[in-house]
Design a protein around this nucleic acid. Sequence first.
DNA 1: GTCTATAATTAGATAGAC
DNA 2: GTCTATCTAATTATAGAC
Lengths: 210, 210
Amino acid sequence: MAARTVEERVQRPSADATRERILFAALDLFSERSFEGASTRLIAEKAGVQQPLLTYHFGTKEELWRAAVGQLFEDLAGSLAERVAGLRGVEDEAVAKLVVADFVRFSAAHPQLHRIIMQECKSEGDRLAWLVAQHIRPLYEGAVALLEPLKAAGKVRDVSAAHLYYLLTGAAATIFVLAPECRLLTGVDPLDPSEVERHVDAVISMLFVP
Amino acid sequence: MAARTVEERVQRPSADATRERILFAALDLFSERSFEGASTRLIAEKAGVQQPLLTYHFGTKEELWRAAVGQLFEDLAGSLAERVAGLRGVEDEAVAKLVVADFVRFSAAHPQLHRIIMQECKSEGDRLAWLVAQHIRPLYEGAVALLEPLKAAGKVRDVSAAHLYYLLTGAAATIFVLAPECRLLTGVDPLDPSEVERHVDAVISMLFVP
DNA sequence: GTCTATAATTAGATAGAC
DNA sequence: GTCTATCTAATTATAGAC
């Protein structure tokens, strides 16, 4: 998001709200229907504005996608950083378990995150390169820094860093990404808060050595 | 695929090959670009035919999608059924480990399977309903029948059936679905045969109690 | 069975009024 | 800042020749 002065904000109080509504609608539709499947007309309709207004605020469809996705990744990074900062002095294994639990809860609260990743990271392209460079690499490096020392100490299962990362993210997120399938197939709503907590426990039991 | 007599096949030897080439191209493009993102013109181009020929052979884009996806799911079901049939008399836990290993290897050899699932099962719609009714439910029930007795015997981690299913499928498939991201992010090619076997071991170590 | 040509619809982006 | 009207290109599907 471009820097903006306080004066500009005060002069255009409603434009910010419009931008936010567009970003919210865009994230929902991009994540459910993919970049190509979500038309700018439908995003505009969901946001309660006319389609050319998206061009006015964001330029192209691609830039709108980056703004919406970037905001979500920043939410995740902020939420994890805040958790780690609040745990200075706590034992490493306990920190890791709390961070993993937070990650699972974030994945449940924001299934759009992994839906976007699953869409854009399965074939090469500009959006994959941008996502990895801007947002995914820092998360991966944070995960490695958190888990590798515990693996060396025998507290996390002995699996190479790449495999461990995809085991963790796949196991944590898939049930929420596929929530509509899960409801139809099993009758269980994975987004129900008690099911989210069961999933937290399940992921931790698979990742950490008892 | 509609039933066809031997006579018809013999009369039109090249039409079958054309159909197969179209199905192959369709599966690749649908799985990489999503249903909306894969244009019938591009599928035709990849198959080396003109676009109206898809209509001739498959009617609509939706029916082409079902034919391509159905064939892949039947491959998986056939491959798992064959493995189970070849293991009559073998101990339950060993059977389950071999079936899980086969499932991981199939996911590596055919990342299209989980790419399609990830695309279509994240929001309600006709394609989700069709996939679950025709293909996913039998797989889920097979997985439950295989793993629930082992869970009761303490040989598989104690997690409810729905969570276990999504833990298994998510952990098994995500690294292959996101192979381009994995290469860029970690430098590891998850489709390398030795990496596939490492992933088999990793999934089994997370799922089964040692 | 496969092609060329094209109809009908929808897409993202632009022009210009207010 | 938001709208209406419209441009150009791309989409799926159809018609009809060979």
